[in-house]
C-alpha cells in the first residue's frame, strides 16, 4: 500500500507541512527548496488546479529522480499558459510537440535516454482531452509496449483551453459549450465517456493511480511509487478548473476534496490491473454538496431542482463507493498512529 500512515499531529497528515516532523517526512511541497517545476509568472487563471497539480506531481517526481527528469507536454492549457514566447515557467527539461502525441514523444525521449545510457526518467503529461481523446491512441500504444514512461493526466473534465467544450472525461449533466443547457436533457448526456484509469488497468501496466489536488500526501506518495517502478505507468489527477466549472477560484482544492469525498472521483491505486489500495472517504458528503458549488451544474438547482438527475449522479457516486470500497467502518481512524 502506497498510502502513508496517518500521523497525528497538531494538524495530522493532511496539511502540506508540519513543523513537528523531520524534514524527510514532510511533503516535497513543504520544502522551501522544492523545484517549483512550474514557476511564478505563468498565465493560468486564478486558482488553477492544473498549475497546482502539475507542480505537485513534477516536484515530487523531481525529488524521486534526484532531478534526473524530462517531461513531455501535450498541447493544452498547461502548455499554453506556461510557455508563451519569450517566457517559460518550466524549470525542468520540458518538450512540447503536439496535442495528440505526447505519449509517443515521451516514448522517444525514454528510448533516447536509454540508448545514451542516461538514467533520466520520463513523464508525459496532458489534460483530459490530450489523454482520453486525441492522445488516446498514442497512450494506448505506449501502455501496451510498456515503454518506460509515467503518463500523467491532469483531468479538468473538458477542453478548457479552447473555451470549455466537452471531452470524453466530461461528467454527465455538466454544462459545456458543446453540451449546452438547452433541450429536454440539458448538459452532458449520461452513459458516455471513458474511465481511463480502468482502461489503463486493462493494459496490465505496472501501476495506475488516481489522485486529487486536495490530498497532497496521497498524490506525492503515488508519484513516489510510480517513479520507483519502470515500464508504462499512469497517474490520473483531478484538477478543478474555476473557469470551466464555474467555481470560485478559492474553491479549487475544496472541490477536489468534495469530488473524492462524495465518491464521484474514486481515489485508488492498482498494480498490474488489480486495485491494491483505495484512499477511503473520511467524511462522506452527498453529491449535491459538490455539485452546488459549480455553475456548470447550476441548471440542476433551478427553481425546480432536477432531483432525478441529481439522483442519477448520486447513484454513480454510490456505485464507485461500492466498486472501490471507499467507505469502511474505521475510515476516520483507520491508520491512526499516535
Amino acid at each position: 500500500m502506497t498510502r502513508r500512515p496517518i500521523r497525528f499531529y497538531q494538524v495530522g497528515s493532511f496539511a502540506v507541512g508540519n513543523r513537528l516532523l523531520e524534514d524527510e517526512e514532510r511533503t516535497v511541497q513543504s520544502d522551501a527548496k522544492r523545484t517549483n517545476s512550474i514557476d511564478s509568472g505563468h498565465r493560468a487563471c486564478q486558482g488553477c488546479g492544473e498549475a497546482l497539480g502539475a507542480r505537485y506531481a513534477l516536484d515530487a517526481a523531481m525529488r524521486a529522480t534526484n532531478g534526473q527528469l524530462a517531461v513531455v507536454n501535450a498541447t493544452g492549457c498547461l502548455e499554453v499558459f506556461s510557455t508563451p514566447y519569450p517566457e517559460t515557467s518550466w524549470r525542468i527539461a520540458w518538450l512540447h510537440s503536439l496535442f495528440g502525441n505526447a505519449p509517443a514523444v515521451a516514448t522517444g525521449v525514454a528510448a533516447a535516454m536509454r540508448v545514451k545510457g542516461r538514467d533520466v526518467r520520463v513523464i508525459g503529461q496532458a489534460g483530459d482531452g490530450g489523454t482520453v481523446d486525441i492522445g488516446f491512441g498514442a497512450l494506448s500504444g505506449m501502455f501496451e509496449r510498456n515503454d518506460d514512461v509515467l503518463f500523467i493526466c491532469y483531468d479538468n473534465e473538458g477542453y478548457m483551453n479552447t473555451g470549455v467544450q466537452r471531452s470524453a472525461a466530461t461528467p454527465p449533466a455538466a454544462r459545456t459549450a458543446t453540451t449546452e443547457v438547452v433541450g429536454p436533457h440539458p448538459g452532458n448526456v449520461f452513459g458516455q465517456g471513458k474511465d481511463l484509469p480502468r482502461i489503463a488497468m486493462a493494459h496490465d501496466v505496472s501501476y495506475v493511480a488516481t489522485a486529487t489536488v486536495a490530498d497532497l500526501h496521497d498524490l506525492e506518495a503515488k508519484v513516489d511509487k510510480a517513479m520507483s517502478l519502470h515500464g508504462a505507468r499512469y497517474l490520473h489527477i483531478l484538477v478543478p478548473c474555476p473557469l470551466g466549472w464555474g467555481s470560485a477560484s478559492s474553491d479549487t482544492i475544496h472541490l477536489a476534496r468534495l469530488a473524492a469525498e462524495s465518491g464521484l472521483f474514486p481515489v485508488f491505486e492498482a498494480e498490474h490491473g488489480v486495485v491494491t489500495s483505495v484512499t477511503p472517504i473520511r467524511r462522506r458528503v452527498r453529491v449535491e454538496e459538490y455539485l452546488r458549488r459549480q455553475k456548470r451544474y447550476a441548471h440542476l438547482f433551478a427553481t425546480e431542482p432536477a432531483t432525478d438527475v441529481i439522483a442519477r449522479l448520486q447513484a454513480m457516486a454510490d456505485a464507485n463507493v461500492a466498486r472501490y470500497h471507499l467507505v469502511n467502518d474505521e475510515t476516520a481512524n483507520s491508520d491512526l498512529e499516535a
Binding site: 524530462a70 503536439l98 502525441n101 522517444g108 498514442a138
Partner: peptide, 15 residues
Amino acid sequence: FAAMSVSIGASAAGA
C-alpha cells in the same frame, strides 16, 4: 503518427 512522434522525442533528447 506515433512513428514520427517517437522520432521527435528521440531526436529532441539527442538521439
